[in-house]
């Protein structure tokens, strides 16, 4: 479903964040991306959603080369993906409900369907009681959960999570991981970047390790 062919990413300042990456992720697969800080995990994930563009090589999603996508087609690629951002990217002038509403508005959901979906998503991350609350009053972990709710509310085919458990205690981290497993079980392709070794204990899924922009395993 996701294919990297000789993908390199050099930032404008000359820094080589990813170096000749070859990668194949099947539909419905669950994959972890690990590596030290600065190894290129976030860059790799952003390439999939075309948030960053590769300097060389090609990336195909569902057989379609995303380098060849016209700018006008990018939004529709991104709507297939749910992205949990490392820095959350929440809107602080909108309450919890409205933050989760955004992806549904973008895809043009009808009001009532949207409301029930939002409640279901908030319920999954344990924020159902806080719909009307502004994000400033939420804790770091709650920010993270809100970001996850926003990423899953439109039921994307691909779920990408960049350090989704970074701010969570291990109990909540386990809950969140269980949630990701359940998405994987209903056929969603799941990619998770983490340097939390605890998450990978007893893990039976594929792990991709990055080191200085290169794949090591």
């Amino acid at each position: 479903m996701i294919q990297f062919r000789h993908v390199s990413k050099r930032f404008p300042d000359g820094y080589m964040a990813l170096n000749n990456i070859d990668l194949n992720i099947d539909a419905g697969e669950m994959v972890f991306v690990t590596g030290h800080s600065g190894a290129g995990k976030s860059t790799l994930l952003k390439l999939i959603a075309a948030i960053e563009r590769p300097t060389s090589g090609s990336i195909a999603i569902n057989g379609q080369n995303i380098a060849q996508l016209k700018p006008a087609a990018l939004p529709f690629l991104r709507r297939k993906i749910g992205f949990v951002f490392q820095d959350h990217k929440l809107l602080f002038d909108r309450n919890v409900f409205e933050n989760v509403l955004l992806p549904l508005q973008i895809s043009g959901f009808e009001q009532n369907t949207a409301a029930s979906r939002i409640r279901a998503a908030l319920d999954k991350v344990g924020l159902l009681g806080k719909e009307k609350v502004l994000p400033v009053t939420l804790s770091g972990g709650e920010h993270q959960r809100l970001c996850i709710a926003r990423a899953i509310v439109h039921r994307p085919a691909i779920l990408i999570a960049d350090e989704p458990t970074g701010n969570l205690d291990s109990a909540y981290a386990q809950d969140i991981m269980a949630m990701f497993y359940s998405f994987h079980q209903v056929g969603v392709t799941v990619l998770i970047a983490t340097h939390d070794a605890g998450l990978l204990e007893n893990n039976k899924h594929r792990v991709i390790a990055l080191q200085q922009g290169k794949l090591t395993a």
């Binding site: 939004p75 991104r78 992806p103 973008i106």
Partner: peptide, 16 residues
């Protein structure tokens, strides 16, 4: 700016 940026990130078209 932030709102526009986030909207673009999660698939908003320019007309939207």
């Amino acid at each position: 700016q932030k709102e526009i940026e986030v909207s673009k990130l999660i698939g908003a078209t320019d007309p939207f």
